[in-house]
């Protein structure tokens, strides 16, 4: 079958289809990258200019002087390094727990998660501000970290709830028979089996934290507490002739998220890896 002409055509078609998808979705990134290599301060190009003339790194060097990129980058990395693991911890614990509940409690909790999911972000802008102010934590790093306490988004809890339901109950029961407590069963038995969910939640949580410009805008005020998306946002007011700098900033903001997923999908979402994970439970 492997050598049949039809199979080969289908395989070649498959490769072509994947490359087409890749090309289409890569287009915006390429445009941003090439636009960031145009010298700032020139009249904006008419239409698109794939290879700027001259190719220049001025936008990148001016980016570093215009926005407090260095300091903002450090803070953003620290925040992500804290928020992502805590989010995984909180939402996977909650997701696991929901799976262990009896049907009525489980349904109520899933329903609650869906209702929380329906709360639009603008509903929180002002009133959360009032709560933070009452708690006296406006302009402290806590406002960047607190969202992790509720798992950033109920979606993650729901994803874990579905993920853990796929873990055969016998495995958990066996751990229980072996004398493991629920935390141990979660950590040693269930958590490793939902690796793909953890990867997805981790990547999504990273993106949500990494790109969030509203939280720092509303709840922080000190310069020292500028995060990267907010620093990049200041570039938005640049004149059109200086958009290469904005593009450089956007690329700088996008690259870590792209790299993270590139590594994650290669390491964790490859087939052999999954087979290994599932093989382990035998």
């Amino acid at each position: 079958m492997r050598t049949s002409p039809g199979g080969r055509v289908a395989a070649a078609g498959g490769v072509a289809l994947r490359l087409l998808v890749a090309g289409l979705f890569l287009l915006p990134l390429l445009w941003v990258a090439s636009a960031s290599l145009r010298a700032p301060g020139l009249p904006p190009p008419r239409g698109v200019e794939w290879i700027p003339d001259p190719v220049s790194l001025d936008a990148w060097s001016r980016l570093l002087t215009l926005a407090p990129v260095g300091r903002a980058l450090v803070l953003s990395v620290v925040v992500a390094a804290i928020v992502v693991p805590v989010t995984i911890l909180v939402s996977s614990l909650a997701g696991f727990a929901i799976g262990r509940m009896g049907a009525p409690a489980r349904r109520t909790l899933l329903g609650l998660a869906v209702v929380l999911l329906l709360v639009p972000a603008p509903a929180l802008w002002l009133t959360r501000f009032l709560l933070y102010r009452t708690a006296g934590i406006i302009d402290t790093p806590l406002v960047l970290l607190l969202p992790a306490a509720f798992g950033l988004s109920p979606v993650f809890v729901l994803l874990y709830a579905w993920g853990f339901r796929r873990v055969p109950t016998e495995l958990i029961e066996q751990a229980r028979m072996d004398g493991a407590g629920p935390f141990r069963a979660w950590w040693s038995v269930a958590f490793p089996l939902v690796l793909p969910t953890t990867v997805a939640v981790g990547v999504l949580a990273f993106v949500a934290t990494w790109g969030d410009a509203v939280t720092p805008l509303l709840y922080l005020r000190s310069d020292e507490l500028t995060t990267l998306p907010l620093a990049i946002r200041t570039l938005q007011t640049l004149d059109r002739s200086d958009w290469p700098i904005l593009m450089a900033g956007a690329l700088l903001l996008a690259l870590p998220a792209i790299a993270l997923f590139g590594i994650a999908q290669r390491r964790f979402l490859a087939d052999d890896r999954i087979a290994e994970t599932f093989g382990r439970r035998g």
Binding site: V15, L19, A22, F25, L29, P229, I258, G262
Partner: peptide
Amino acid sequence: PRRGTGTARVAAWIPAVIPDVAAALVWLW
């Protein structure tokens, strides 16, 4: 995983992580 899958996966992910402002400028073009 087949040929080109890794690249295509990352590519499909990219528009979601390009900051709104820059993405909007791309679509404007």
